[in-house]
Computed example of a mutant assay.
Amino acid sequence: MDTIRSLRCFVRAVELGSLSAVAREEGTTQPTVSKIVAALERELGVRLLERSTTSLQATPQGMRFYQRALGVLAEYQEAVAEARGQTETPAGLIRVNAPAAFGQFCLNAMLAPFLARHPQVDIELILDDRMVDLVKEGVDIAVRQGRELPPDAIARLAGSSPRQLVASPDYLRAHGKPKQPQDLARHDYIRFAWLADGDLLTLYNGEHTETVPTRGRYRVNHALAIREALAAGGGIGLCPLWLVQDLLDSDALVRVLPRWHGQEQPLHLLSPSRRYQPLRARLLLDYLAEQIALLPGYNAS
C-alpha cells in the first residue's frame, strides 16, 4: 500500500466530504479512492469514515487520525523539499481565489509573467467575492481585501489602498462641489450594494471623524461597475485608489473633499494553516506580494 497516497486521500476526503471530489483532484475514479481508503482502514483496524448515500464524514477515531495525518504529511513534504534542496523545480497546480473586481482589474495581468517564468506550474484562478474555506475548497492562495479574515488561515499583509471621495468633472460642474462632509447628503452618492452601514458614510481628517448620511439612487455589487458609473458622471463615490488611480491621473475623475478620506482598505494574501507549503505556492505568494506593492494606488505593507 502507498501509505503517503492513502493518507493524502483520506485527509482530502475529510476536508472535501466527498470521495468523488478527491478522485477529481487525484485524476482517478471514485471507486479507486474508495478502495484506497478502505485499505487504510483495514490496515489500522479502525473505521475512519462514515459513508451514506448523501454524505461522508469522519468518525471520532477518524477525526483524531486526521489531525495526526496532517502532521505526517507536512513532515513528509518538508523532508522531500529539504532532500531536493536547490534542485527542486516548482511544478504542479496552484489554486488561487480572489475578489472578482480586483482579480479582473489587477491580478489577472500579474499571473501571465509568473507562468512564463515557471513553465511546469499551472494556475487555476477563481474570482469570487465570498470568503471561501481554503482547506475545504482546496485553495492554495486567497487574495482578500478588508479587515475581516478567517481565523484559521495564515494572513500576509501585501499593502493597503487609501480610499478617497471622487467624482467626474462633468458631475461637479453640473451639481457643484461639496464644501464639507454634510454637503454629501445633497448629492447623488454611488455605493456598494451590501454595506453594513447602509447609507451612512464615515470620513476621517486627522483626529476628526464625521459620520454623515448619503443619498443615492444607484447601488451596485461590483467595484468595476462603480468605477464606470463614476467616470460617466453618475455621482460621488468613496473608492480605494487601486480602483481609480489611473482615472485620477488622467483627470477623468477628481478628488472631492480631498482633506477627508475613508478607512484604508488592506489587502492580505491568505494560505491554509498548515506548516508546509509547496515551493510553487511559496514562490507565487512572494511574487504577488512584490507586484501588489507596485500597483498604482497601493501603499506597501
Results as ranks from 00 to 15, higher is better:
residue 100 A to S: 12
residue 284 L to I: 04
residue 180 Q to S: 12
residue 291 Q to F: 08
residue 278 P to M: 04
residue 1 M to T: 08
residue 293 A to M: 08
residue 280 R to E: 14
residue 120 Q to M: 14
residue 120 Q to R: 13
residue 193 A to G: 05
residue 203 L to G: 13
residue 270 L to F: 10
residue 138 G to T: 08
residue 124 E to D: 08
residue 83 A to D: 08
residue 100 A to E: 15
residue 186 R to E: 15
residue 169 P to S: 06
residue 183 D to L: 00
residue 26 E to H: 14
residue 6 S to A: 15
residue 294 L to Y: 08
residue 53 T to G: 05
residue 284 L to F: 08
residue 194 W to R: 13
residue 9 C to T: 01
residue 257 L to A: 07
residue 133 D to T: 01
residue 188 D to S: 12
residue 231 A to Y: 01
residue 98 A to L: 00
residue 289 A to Y: 01
residue 125 L to H: 06
residue 58 A to P: 12
residue 139 V to A: 00
residue 210 E to L: 09
residue 301 S to G: 15
residue 181 P to T: 06
residue 70 L to W: 01
residue 151 P to K: 00
residue 72 V to Y: 05
residue 246 D to T: 05
residue 117 R to N: 11
residue 123 I to C: 03
residue 83 A to L: 15
residue 219 R to I: 15
residue 259 R to T: 15
residue 215 R to G: 00
residue 270 L to I: 10
residue 85 G to F: 11
residue 18 S to Y: 06
residue 242 W to Y: 10
residue 65 F to I: 11
residue 237 G to D: 05
residue 185 A to I: 13
residue 51 R to S: 03
residue 13 A to H: 00
residue 104 Q to T: 12
residue 142 A to D: 10
residue 184 L to I: 14
residue 44 L to Q: 05
residue 87 T to V: 11
residue 261 H to A: 13
residue 35 K to Y: 11
residue 231 A to F: 03
residue 49 L to M: 11
residue 159 G to F: 05
residue 58 A to L: 10
residue 90 P to M: 05
residue 162 P to W: 01
residue 142 A to G: 12
residue 204 Y to Q: 14
residue 161 S to I: 09
residue 178 P to R: 04
residue 156 R to W: 13
residue 144 R to F: 05
residue 53 T to I: 08
residue 150 P to I: 04
residue 236 I to C: 04
residue 33 V to K: 02
residue 236 I to A: 05
residue 138 G to S: 11
residue 262 G to R: 09
residue 280 R to D: 10
residue 93 L to G: 02
residue 84 R to A: 15
residue 186 R to L: 01
residue 292 I to H: 05
residue 51 R to L: 05
residue 215 R to Y: 12
residue 105 F to Y: 08
residue 117 R to A: 15
residue 38 A to M: 01
residue 286 D to K: 08
residue 216 G to A: 06
residue 13 A to L: 06
residue 292 I to Y: 01
residue 285 L to Y: 02
residue 104 Q to F: 03
residue 193 A to K: 09
residue 9 C to P: 02
residue 122 D to R: 14
residue 204 Y to H: 15
residue 177 K to M: 12
residue 92 G to Y: 11
residue 206 G to M: 03
residue 122 D to E: 13
residue 245 Q to K: 08
residue 22 V to G: 02
residue 163 R to P: 04
residue 12 R to I: 09
residue 280 R to C: 08
residue 248 L to A: 06
residue 198 G to K: 00
residue 43 E to I: 09
residue 129 D to R: 06
residue 161 S to D: 02
residue 291 Q to G: 11
residue 259 R to G: 15
residue 88 E to N: 06
residue 182 Q to N: 10
residue 239 C to V: 15
residue 30 Q to F: 02
residue 63 M to L: 06
residue 255 R to N: 07
residue 140 D to P: 01
residue 141 I to F: 07
residue 282 R to W: 11
residue 175 H to A: 09
residue 168 S to H: 00
residue 61 Q to K: 13
residue 43 E to Q: 13
residue 58 A to D: 05
residue 191 R to N: 02
residue 182 Q to C: 08
residue 271 S to P: 04
residue 197 D to E: 15
residue 111 L to V: 07
residue 38 A to L: 03
